[in-house]
Write a protein that binds this DNA or RNA. Sequence first.
DNA 1: ATATTGATGTTCGTTTATGGATAAAACGAA
DNA 2: TTCGTTTTATCCATAAACGAACATCAATAT
Lengths: 245, 245
Amino acid sequence: MNFRHAKILEQARTDGKVTVEGLASLFNVTLQTIRRDLTDLAEQGRLERVHGGAILPSGLRNIRYEDRRRLNDDAKARIGLACANEVKNGSSVFVGIGTTCEAAARALVHHEGLLVMTNNLNAVPILSANPSNRVMVTGGTLRHADGGLVGAQAAAGVRQLKFDLAIIGCSALDQTGDLFDYDLDEVIVSQSVIENSHATALVADRSKFSRTAPARIARMTDLALFVTDGLASGMAHHPLRTVTV
Amino acid sequence: MNFRHAKILEQARTDGKVTVEGLASLFNVTLQTIRRDLTDLAEQGRLERVHGGAILPSGLRNIRYEDRRRLNDDAKARIGLACANEVKNGSSVFVGIGTTCEAAARALVHHEGLLVMTNNLNAVPILSANPSNRVMVTGGTLRHADGGLVGAQAAAGVRQLKFDLAIIGCSALDQTGDLFDYDLDEVIVSQSVIENSHATALVADRSKFSRTAPARIARMTDLALFVTDGLASGMAHHPLRTVTV
DNA sequence: ATATTGATGTTCGTTTATGGATAAAACGAA
DNA sequence: TTCGTTTTATCCATAAACGAACATCAATAT
């Protein structure tokens, strides 16, 4: 344990990741020293080591989910940041399932006095890093694959509150403006979230345009905001307010 | 405690860290004296010792909780094991808040086909390590101190199911056979659990006999089983079925 | 006056952190 | 795949930090 460890963890919590290079120049020590730090922290389970740096530990998630998290994570961080800009201090927020929603949760650390509900167990430690947040969990059936809580109980949990802004993701988007998902148990939660929010923001990186999924969540017109990193050509003039990062 | 301690803590709070060298020259004492001071403060949990100095304890919550987890963990593991013996494969189980309940969760890894609900987020990764378990979460307000979900919503989540066996803990036990807790929001959950279970097991190590807490959860006669590592003298002949490990 | 206690200083052998060197492993591009 | 580059783990040497034991001193009790 040394002086750097606390700072490394802090940076990992705010940025979602740390790099060996970045930390070495930050602390003015050699790369080897940082590697030892990261190894130590990883052995304590406080970080998870990856090539070139480290990320926050997973706990629940499986390998596939880890891979997805690393996929396009720059874009996800930008999307999360843009999304957090829409959140006012002291408001009530919902954070949904998916790595992009987690990026949004990460971007909320500097907000004050939020009431945040989530059905994403990975988002819980991120959100509770800020002690001024009140964090609530929907309840529901745990989906081992990604730490999501789904099903009727999750939907019922959502109905306990009305959100100023709900941040949700989806598995696929089509050109007619529909949102889709794979899992019906997740869809009923998302629908419940949309119903119980003054405004809903969809976060989705461009990869979602080229996917398909069976279960319709909603139409784009049911939403207030769409935050993405690049539009598919056909959707360029969709009526929905769109933020591209 | 001496006059330096207050100043050391003050500096730690403003700078986030203190160094042995810096403090020694500040107070004009030897390095060894400062080391003694820092060791004292670290033992009190007011600082965290690092090589060359000390830092603020990282996230009070985690440290305290980690300490508690290590406290008497042999006994807790035995209690958990004994408790798991009462659980049949394929049954529905509730796992409550506290390190002893987590020990019980750990002991359930070799069971098959359980439906487990919990309001303890620390228990979730433990329970989901066994893929044949169906894991549900109650929902509720997150208590940062220990990862527990409490309040009305947690109690409502509990009412969705009826458990074959519920495993709960408590903060204190008195000789008349009453169970107590510190937090009313947790008590309403425990009461809801007892109501919605065919049988409730209380897990408590002997330290609970010497504690007191304000909020009554239930009477011992409301329970089916009591698993502990040693009885207080006065409770030796309580009518409740008791397993001592 | 003498003994006791507690805080501090001193010494010294041990432990730990760090950086450099090297070889193995992981990665990315062709 | 193969090759070249980057990242990593391991070993070693050095310097710093550490803690235990003992000595010293002052304040207090007997």
